[in-house]
Design a protein around this nucleic acid. Structure first.
Lengths: 205, 205
DNA sequence: GGTTCTATTTATAATAA
DNA sequence: TTTATTATAAATAGAAC
């Protein structure tokens, strides 16, 4: 009748890295790979103590993002010029080609590699500019905000709090994982439930 | 007398997703996983016709990035408010000036998607800001009736707090580990000289 | 938009250059 | 800091909800 015997699935099949024509399949793939990408970004951040930001627009126009510590923070460090009132000093990068001739590269995989290589180069340049400018100063100003409880100085705590810390750690770990895998499609209009008379005015985000 | 017989390698080993202490290993891992992350981003972009941007700062202060069509274009769509007044062609394919050698050849369909997404994004950004203000409320509620900050109801927090939660998680994890192994005097000073650079993790919302 | 279930394809941890 | 090897741990294409 059905497949009481045969393999329940052919398993993962190899695919070519080129636009998926089938709309449905493309959507499913985007969903799966987007999660995978965010997970990888999160792991890179945790494992190597790196700051990472990822922003992805689906062809349908939805936006998803991941940031450690936040997309904004990383992006501003990457390109402080876009931060308010900075002078727009164009990068003095040399254009390797004749500036107009289209490139006809062989295989797409190589093209991707080129794209990645190029971005890395541009990143280095941006970093250089950022360094030449006093980024540290801007960061200092940017973080002039109020300290939040979760930013507490954990290092200052002692052994007595260890049990609680471990519980919190596990709790946070589980929750963070959940949130991470759930991705962050920019929220549809958040339905604001009324909050008691709590003075939130002290939290300026 | 070496290992003419034994397996030449134990093969990939499973690891915990937490900061890698060994400086050398951490660096190697960063290098490998960064490439993996960019490759994944590139594939997602190609396979699903999505616009993706990834920016990563190593703990050593180096910057790396990948963008399709460019980090700039994606970032601006994500947060148009940071882009100063004018709105140059969203996914401009070329920057003959000193912008660098762009090999990007965006297809019209994608450009169209980007334009459509922009409008949608503008509206979402407003919602996003509102949500950020809401973070303060959530935290306050999560702490309701809790004498100690670390007893806060983590489960009640949402995606907006994810970045901070992850930082806290890592911080707690490291500290808890330290306390747990403080049975012995003091381990020899770790040979890892951290970056004297600015600490991005101190960023606040 | 998401999720679950296999069978495979990939990504990589360890190591050594 | 990037790359090559090798043996495994992970990610994920397909199909069906």
């Amino acid at each position: 009748m059905v497949r009481s015997r045969g393999r329940p699935s052919l398993g993962r099949q190899r695919i070519e890295i080129r636009r998926i024509d089938n709309s449905g399949r493309r959507q499913v793939t985007f969903s799966k790979r987007r999660n995978g990408l965010f997970k990888k970004a999160s792991e890179l951040s945790t494992l190597c103590g790196a700051s990472v930001a990822v922003v992805a627009f689906s062809s349908a126009g939805n936006v998803f993002a991941f940031g450690q510590p936040t997309v904004d923070a990383v992006v501003r460090l990457f390109d402080p010029l876009h931060a308010d009132g900075a002078d727009p000093a164009p990068a003095a990068v040399e254009d390797g080609g004749g500036g107009g001739d289209d490139v006809v590269v062989a295989d797409p995989e190589e093209l991707d590699a080129l794209r990645r290589a190029e971005e890395q180069t541009k990143a280095q340049v941006a970093a250089e500019q950022a360094r030449m400018r006093d980024v540290g100063d801007k960061v200092t100003q940017a973080m002039a905000g109020r300290p939040l409880w979760w930013e507490a100085d954990v290092e200052a705590l002692g052994e007595a709090e260890l049990p609680a810390l471990e519980r919190l750690r596990d709790s946070v770990h589980r929750h963070a994982s959940t949130l991470a895998s759930t991705a962050t499609p920019l929220p549809p209009p958040p339905e604001q439930e009324e909050v008691p008379e709590l003075d939130v005015s002290d939290y300026s985000f």
